[in-house]
Computed example of a mutant assay.
Amino acid sequence: MAVYNGICVAPETCTCYPDYVQNSEGICVKNVPMAVENGICNFDNTCRCNAGYFPDSTGKTCHPKCDKICSNGFCSGPNRCSCKAGFVKDVNDSFRCVPTCSPPCENGICSGPNMCLCYSGYVKDRSGRGSNKCVKP
Rank of each mutant, 00 (worst) to 15 (best):
C62I: 01
I69F: 15
V135S: 06
V135K: 11
P11R: 03
Y53H: 13
I40R: 08
C81V: 11
F95P: 01
E25M: 12
T61H: 10
F95R: 00
I27E: 14
G121V: 11
R129K: 15
N50D: 15
C118Y: 02
P33N: 08
V98N: 10
P11Q: 07
C66A: 07
F87Y: 15
A35K: 14
A2H: 11
G73C: 08
G130T: 07
A2G: 11
S131P: 02
Q22N: 10
P104A: 02
K84F: 12
P33D: 11
R126P: 10
N114T: 05
K136C: 03
G39H: 01
P18S: 08
F87N: 03
N79I: 10
S111I: 14
G59D: 04
P99V: 11
K133F: 00
Y20P: 03
Q22E: 13
V9S: 12
P104I: 00
N38V: 07
C14P: 03
I40W: 06
F74R: 13
T100P: 04
C28P: 02
C66H: 03
T100I: 10
K30P: 09
S111Q: 09
V88N: 09
P64I: 11
V135A: 07
C8E: 03
K89E: 03
G6S: 02
G130E: 08
V3W: 00
S82Y: 02
N72P: 01
N50M: 13
C118R: 02
S102W: 06
G59P: 00
N114F: 06
D90Q: 09
N72I: 04
C81I: 06
E37R: 15
K60R: 14
C101V: 07
C101G: 05
P113M: 05
K89T: 09
Y53N: 04
G39P: 01
C118W: 01
P18D: 08
Y20N: 07
D67L: 13
N114Y: 05
V32I: 14
M115V: 12
I7K: 12
D56I: 10
I109S: 13
K89N: 06
A10I: 08
Y20M: 07
G77E: 08
I109L: 10
F87G: 00
S120R: 12
C62F: 01
R129F: 12
R80Y: 00
T13W: 12
M115R: 14
E25I: 09
C49G: 08
C28H: 06
C81D: 01
V91Q: 10
L117K: 15
N50H: 14
C8S: 08
D93E: 12
G52Y: 01
K68A: 13
S94Y: 13
C41W: 00
G39R: 02
P103I: 00
G108D: 04
G77Y: 09
C8K: 02
V32E: 06
V3A: 00
G130I: 01
R80I: 08
